[in-house]
């Protein structure tokens, strides 16, 4: 068992987590968030991108108590404490779903799809959820 200290990792990798699924239809979004927290706790350079139905993960006012699931949307607010500030939402995905940035529960930057293409190229690894 290892626990991280205050020291950053010696050779941090650029890791991008691509979130494409709606929040409660599968366990993938939760697993992605766990992986993001773990990677950042180990000092990796983490970028988080929400694309397609993935943007629904960030909708405010989620309350899954009646469907008896955990409200993991509350965990997004901890990303700042974990040092994850590179959070992007693909613009047309948000627009197609009739949502705007002020309906999202954390500050995210809008990104165009061609910018996302470049962002993917810059990474050491891309994890798709």
């Amino acid at each position: 068992m290892t626990e991280t200290t205050e020291q950053p990792a010696v050779n941090p990798k650029k890791l991008l987590f691509l979130n494409r699924k709606a929040p409660y239809g599968s366990s993938l979004p939760r697993e992605a968030l766990d992986a993001v927290l773990m990677a950042s706790a180990f000092g990796q350079q983490v970028t988080l991108v929400f694309l397609g139905d993935g943007v629904f993960q960030l909708k405010t006012q989620q309350d899954p108590s009646e469907i008896e699931m955990k409200n993991f949307s509350k965990t997004f607010a901890a990303l700042e404490l974990y040092g994850v500030s590179s959070i992007f939402v693909e613009q047309s995905s948000l627009q197609k779903r009739g949502l705007t940035l002020d309906q999202l529960l954390i500050p995210a930057k809008l990104i165009q799809s061609h910018e996302l293409t470049e962002l993917l190229e810059e990474q050491d690894q891309v994890m798709s959820f």
Binding site: P23, F56, Q61, Q62, D63, P64, E66, I67, Q103
Partner: peptide, 12 residues
């Protein structure tokens, strides 16, 4: 309704 509330879209 419970599925709307889970997803935070009951007002949309």
């Amino acid at each position: 309704r419970p599925d709307l509330q889970a997803r935070g879209i009951q007002d949309c």
